[in-house]
Design a protein around this nucleic acid. Structure first.
Ligand SMILES: NC(=O)c1ccc[n+]([C@@H]2O[C@H](COP(=O)([O-])OP(=O)(O)OC[C@H]3O[C@@H](n4cnc5c(N)ncnc54)[C@H](O)[C@@H]3O)[C@@H](O)[C@H]2O)c1
Ligand SMILES: NC(=O)c1ccc[n+]([C@@H]2O[C@H](COP(=O)([O-])OP(=O)(O)OC[C@H]3O[C@@H](n4cnc5c(N)ncnc54)[C@H](O)[C@@H]3O)[C@@H](O)[C@H]2O)c1
Lengths: 222, 222
DNA sequence: AGGGTTTTGTTTAATAATTAACAATTAAAT
DNA sequence: ATTTAATTGTTAATTATTAAACAAAACCCT
């Protein structure tokens, strides 16, 4: 097998960094909401840091990077930061999402009530099984060959893949072809996508295996 | 509010690193299996790298770190590496897992057939809803107050939390108290645990929001 | 009003992770 | 057998991330 020998560059690197940072910001928001509900209206970097398990400097740096400003001696005004984060995440808009596969995972997602609080909505599902189409679902469910039409009509850019591994790449291709730009993938494969499409994998098995490794490792060194 | 001013140290840091590395190893395994099924019996760092989106040097470094050895000029023998990874992950043992919460997510997990191929098994579920106990499930389901007994009797160290946010911390405490050392958490909160308990969060909403941010950011800079 | 104290925000330093480089090796070709 | 080409594994360099340090700001208390 012949390989390229030219210098390897990593187009996804910078994107991974941004994604990691924004994920921390999303965690801060969760925590800010918690403290707001507890009746606080201000918070310090130290408190936030402790809560999500990073250093206070990290919090200040993250906030600084996204231009989230605090007050010297008085910390961060929770509402102010929340507003800024919501703006950053375009939370003023409702974000439409489509879902491929209404099996075990797909059904759980359809039932989930947490999306709407965060201004996200599953607008359509797709499944090859005719039984899934008839079912009185919370969302309209179509056969897969209507996916392109629905994506275009509804102008959806985010899709969830919850179909069997064997058809996941094919569904992914259809999604991308029709204009989907971000994919949350539950299937245990690495999807191939163009560089401008972002994929986030969720693998319950992988996470469990990593957990198991960690616990066994700790047991050994004890 | 008065804060500690002593130097901040980060006990979880080293663990995060190990977890990240082992997660990459788990991904390599997924990829190795794929190529094995395609009929290959050897593979190069370059191929693996391309497949999971890292540099070939990273693959070699990771393998080296876990003492997974290849052959100069001939790459890595897939079966050999797979065997070593499985040994590393203690795949010779069946790993028992308990599940708290048999709602939408919990039911999906119970139905999932992918665990057993990877030598993991849900051995018991816990739910406060009596209706969930009666249901003819694939696994026995108990009320939460039997959790400690079952965990001890079955010697389980891994637990999944799929209960509502409001009770997640309480269930977590019960698990830890009874001997659980690794927790996969679906509830949208940061669980508080002793330092020797590893927590892995899965947050569909967070991941979706990060995806949305990425796609909108890309749209802007286009 | 003003000093003391606390906390941010940023710069600088330290640490960690990734990539590059290359020597060692060996499979395959001749 | 010998040579060639290719790929690993490790060391060195680079880059990225995280933490420490500290100056500037501003709250609070007297
Ligand atoms: N259930 C879990 O807890 C779990 C855990 C980890 C990973 N996963 C992964 O998530 C994915 C879905 O898992 P699941 O348990 O929900 O599976 P499932 O078999 O219950 O559901 C899959 C659904 O996809 C539909 N489908 C099949 N081919 C299709 C196609 N070409 N187009 C559209 N729909 C199609 C099926 O009709 C079915 O409804 C799988 O890849 C699985 O490996 C599931
Ligand atoms: N469903 C999803 O797609 C989804 C997505 C993201 C996050 N989550 C999170 O996952 C968790 C579970 O979600 P869900 O949709 O399955 O919720 P659900 O309400 O369908 O299920 C929760 C289950 O927990 C049980 N329960 C409640 N209190 C309990 C207790 N004290 N002990 C044991 N069991 C108890 C309930 O009886 C119910 O069966 C929630 O924290 C939710 O925010 C779910």
């Amino acid at each position: 097998m012949q390989h390229k020998t030219e210098t390897y560059t990593h187009p996804q690197k910078n994107r991974e960094m941004i994604k990691k940072n924004i994920q921390r910001i999303i965690q801060y928001r969760m925590c800010l909401l918690k403290f707001q509900n507890l009746g606080f209206d201000r918070i310090f970097s130290y408190t936030l840091a402790q809560e999500i398990g990073v250093s206070p400097e990290q919090v200040r740096k993250d906030f600084s990077q996204f231009n989230l400003r605090g007050n010297k001696k008085a910390g961060y005004k929770i509402q102010e930061i929340l507003d800024s984060i919501n703006e950053l995440l375009h939370k003023e808009d409702l974000h439409k999402i489509i879902l491929a596969g209404l099996g075990n995972i797909g059904k759980a997602l359809v039932q989930y009530k947490g999306f709407i609080n965060r201004n996200m909505q599953l607008v359509a599902g797709f499944d090859i099984d005719p039984a899934k189409l008839k079912k009185n679902c919370r969302i309209p469910v179509f056969p897969p060959d209507e996916m392109a039409r629905v994506i275009r009509e509804e102008k959806v850019v985010i899709g969830i893949i919850a179909v069997p591994e064997q058809v996941a790449q094919e569904i992914c291709n259809q999604m991308v072809e029709a204009g989907i730009r971000g994919i949350l993938n539950f299937a245990p494969i690495m999807l191939k996508t163009p560089p401008d499409v972002t994929v986030q994998n969720i693998s319950v098995c992988n996470e469990l295996e990593a957990l198991i490794y960690m616990t066994e490792k700790q047991e050994e060194t004890k």
